[in-house]
Design a protein around this nucleic acid. Sequence first.
DNA 1: CAATATACCTTGTAATACAAAGTATAAAAT
DNA 2: ATTTTATACTTTGTATTACAAGGTATATTG
Lengths: 111, 111
Amino acid sequence: MQDFKKQFKKGVIELTILRLLYEQDQYGYSIIQQISKRSDNYIEIKDGTLYPILYRLEDNKFIENYWKTDIGSRSKPRKYYKITIAGRLRYEEMLKDYLEINEGIKKILKS
Amino acid sequence: MQDFKKQFKKGVIELTILRLLYEQDQYGYSIIQQISKRSDNYIEIKDGTLYPILYRLEDNKFIENYWKTDIGSRSKPRKYYKITIAGRLRYEEMLKDYLEINEGIKKILKS
DNA sequence: CAATATACCTTGTAATACAAAGTATAAAAT
DNA sequence: ATTTTATACTTTGTATTACAAGGTATATTG
């Protein structure tokens, strides 16, 4: 209760994840940082929120993963995610619905 | 699954209800119609969704109800809802958070 | 070497829109 | 007149989702 943002985020986090992966492959932790950064800290998500979404998207074949050790100092590999064709379609569909709801709200809030 | 709109609506329905009651007292069924109409049918809500929200808002003292029989032909009274001072504050707070999330999403989706 | 950040994972919980049922009256259609 | 549809309100159960709160392990910084 009182945490409106938590409710307003429902659905949109998946949308933003797909969007970021649409642009380029990324590992989980990076997605969290990107969402903060690109939204000017208006949207923050927890790792306990992100990973289950990634697994769900993977189960539904919207994304797929591969381990990659980045060149440079660090030795530990990171789990990268890549969006699939189906994932791109999913993103387009979600975006359409999001924009519609958004448009509807805007109309109600102004007058 | 596949029903994105249902998720995107989370939280915003309460926001729109408070907004409509902010403008003027209304009975439940009227709110459903107003939301459809003012959003150009982009947002539709079910009666089974609306009423529980109204009861919740009432429990939290954000709105209050009174029965009123409208002048004219119909005899059956309708249950009108009125926003309270606390409800107005609630609306302002929710709106602020909604706009922030919205701004964040916008930033992520463009680039 | 201690503390913090990075990176990933899991279980349980609270919140919410809706489906699907119900009751009852008013208006419209046949 | 009678059937159908719309109005108006109510309730129970369900699916989804973000997060809290715990965990493991490595890398970096003070």
